[in-house]
Simulated assay, not measured.
Amino acid sequence: MLVIRPITESDLPALMQCAEESGHGFTSLPVNEEILSNRIGHSVESFAKAVTKPGPEGYLMVAEDTKTGEIAGTTAIEAAIGLDNPFYTYHLSTVVHSSRRLNVHNVVKILTFGNDYTGVSELCTLFLRPEWRQGLNGRLLSKCRFMMMAEHPERFDTTVIAEMRGVSDEEGHSPFWEWLKEHFFSIDFTLADYLTGIGKKGFIADLMPKLPIYVNLLSPEAQAVIGEVHEKTRPALRLLEKEGFSCRGYVDIFDAGPTVECDARNIESVRHSQRCTVTVGEADNGRDCIISNSSFEHFRAVVGKVVLDEKNATALIDAEMAEALQVNNGDQVRLIAQ
């Protein structure tokens, strides 16, 4: 069984391993021990902090195998992005150039550089190691964040986004970045991605073109990947789309991967999750549910069989699940059937 819990200082080696395995383009997991250590420290402080409205808190969690103690993956939420470090995006929109006198009418796409998502909450750092990519583990790692949002809405913004990794090859070459590099940056995608991941974003403001970019002036290769996702990111995107997330024209400034968003109240798992009272017993005949406790500082989430009585708002779970969730008879949990 995997249990999702807040990260601790002792998880640094495991987080480094996840960073190394995640590959190019995974900006929020740079292979840098100092940066990851600082991020863990910030998360520990954030989980312990009393919060009434979202701020610069970052909540980083890991999925632990309860039998082996191994860390199977990681997932996170940033409460309000762009407050300490700017959060840049491109917005893809349409403009029309026309002349009645000449009977010319051209519709073109443009990319506009900006900070429109400042202050929103962000789903990030979702990575599941290959050995555990089966069953409902991927859903657990993704949906546990929505259970947290449903139970503790005061900690998050009303708008939630997620950046999807864009197209790049195994060597880290991004067709979109190759065009930007040639004309504006003169550094490799992997270096630009790494610098962003460790918070050194000053070069973006220094070198990024401030005026809108006409898409039809980009190389055909760059145009083809705007709004497209990396093949390894497609399962994560499908999960978010089922939750109600969609792209509103915003893409990443480096690889042009789509940014998807949803109103927090309209996220399917937030809307349909329910609070129940726990009973511990035999739950072999139950149905699969993602279930979390009601604590924030000691948040726990698992997936497994639950005998759910929706009318009386009770949930029968077995002793193993109760131990993983750190709950007893009569405690409150939040769950959603799968």
Rank of each mutant, 00 (worst) to 15 (best):
N106M: 08
I204W: 08
E70Q: 10
T158R: 00
I81D: 03
K311I: 12
F203Y: 15
V215P: 01
L60D: 08
S98N: 14
A224T: 08
N115T: 14
I40S: 07
C247W: 01
N85G: 05
P235W: 09
I7N: 00
N137C: 05
I35E: 15
N329T: 06
L211P: 04
S121G: 13
S269A: 09
L308H: 06
D11S: 01
A322Q: 14
D309G: 05
S22K: 07
N137L: 06
C262P: 03
S273L: 02
A150W: 06
V95E: 12
A264Q: 13
T94P: 02
D116W: 09
A19F: 05
D309Y: 06
D157F: 08
R139K: 15
V51S: 01
F127T: 11
L316G: 12
E151M: 15
L239C: 08
S28P: 00
A162H: 01
G119D: 13
A19P: 09
L140D: 08
V307W: 03
G227R: 00
Y250R: 02
P220L: 00
H230Q: 12
L36Y: 03
A301N: 02
E78F: 14
L60P: 06
S246K: 10
V333Y: 02
E171W: 12
G199I: 03
R271E: 06
V3S: 13
Y59T: 07
D11A: 03
E320D: 15
A283Y: 04
D11F: 04
E163V: 00
A337H: 11
D11G: 02
F296E: 08
S269R: 04
L325Q: 08
K210S: 09
G330T: 12
L83G: 05
Q134I: 13
I187A: 09
E154V: 12
P153S: 00
Q17C: 02
S174A: 02
Y250C: 06
N216Y: 13
F203C: 04
I267W: 10
T112D: 05
T52F: 09
E163I: 00
K210G: 10
W177L: 02
N38A: 11
S186F: 08
L239N: 12
S168N: 15
D116H: 05
E170C: 05
L211W: 07
D288I: 13
V327F: 14
P220M: 04
Y88P: 07
L211A: 12
P209C: 11
V62W: 03
A79D: 09
I290G: 11
T89H: 14
E122I: 09
C276V: 11
E323S: 10
E320L: 10
T277Y: 02
L15E: 01
P220D: 06
E9A: 10
D188E: 15
T68N: 10
A315H: 01
V215F: 07
S246V: 11
A150F: 05
N293R: 12
E45P: 02
